[in-house]
Simulated scan of single mutants.
Amino acid sequence: MRLKKYTDYALRVLIYTGSLNKGELASIKEISTVFNISQNHLSKIVYQLGKLGIIETVRGRNGGIRLRKAPESINIGEVIRDMEEDFTLIDDFDENTSEHVIMPSYQLRNALDQALLSFFTELDRYTLEDLLAEELAKLQGQDLNEMA
């Protein structure tokens, strides 16, 4: 299974905004520069994250975006479900013949369904807070290495 860049970028936005000091705002331009993502593309992602109630946007000259929810209440599995449109692991329908391609193999379909369920069960164990803790640990490790 492969997640779209759209979802990857949404997670980056959340990690970036989650790493800011409480109440601090980030701009789309700033995030765009840090991750080398088009501002137009980021605007669409930020809009969707806002519609989901995960981030809030502040308009105006000194505006920007910030988390609306606490990092510990943002579930990574839910975010991915909300950002992705399709979780079909294998096309089992041939559009040219209108026949099911893997219909005889219900066991395969069941195995794939179970794999997808396991994928989300694992992702549901993580919150944005978990990802932020990992990022903070990486940064602290870099700081220690730079001091040596």
Results as ranks from 00 to 15, higher is better:
F87S: 07
E122P: 00
A10Q: 03
T7P: 11
L144G: 06
P104N: 08
L116K: 14
N75P: 02
D8A: 11
F120T: 05
K51Q: 12
P71R: 01
N75D: 10
H41R: 13
S38G: 14
M1P: 12
E84S: 08
E135M: 11
I102A: 06
N75I: 06
S118E: 12
L116Q: 10
R12V: 00
I15A: 09
K44T: 12
L14Q: 01
L52Y: 08
L144K: 14
Y126V: 07
V46C: 11
K22E: 13
E99I: 07
E122L: 13
G63H: 09
T88S: 14
L14M: 12
L49K: 03
T57R: 13
H41W: 03
A133R: 13
T17E: 03
D130W: 03
R109V: 03
I15V: 15
L128Y: 04
L11Q: 01
Y126Q: 07
E95I: 13
M147I: 12
Q140V: 11
E84M: 06
G64D: 08
T127W: 02
V13R: 00
R81K: 15
L49H: 05
Y6D: 12
T33K: 15
K138Y: 13
G141L: 15
E30N: 10
R2P: 08
A10S: 12
F119Q: 11
A10Y: 00
A10H: 04
L144S: 14
V101D: 04
L20F: 02
I65C: 08
E72T: 04
P104T: 07
T7K: 13
T17G: 02
D94L: 11
N145W: 10
T121E: 14
L52V: 02
L128W: 03
D124P: 08
L131G: 07
T7Y: 10
F120C: 05
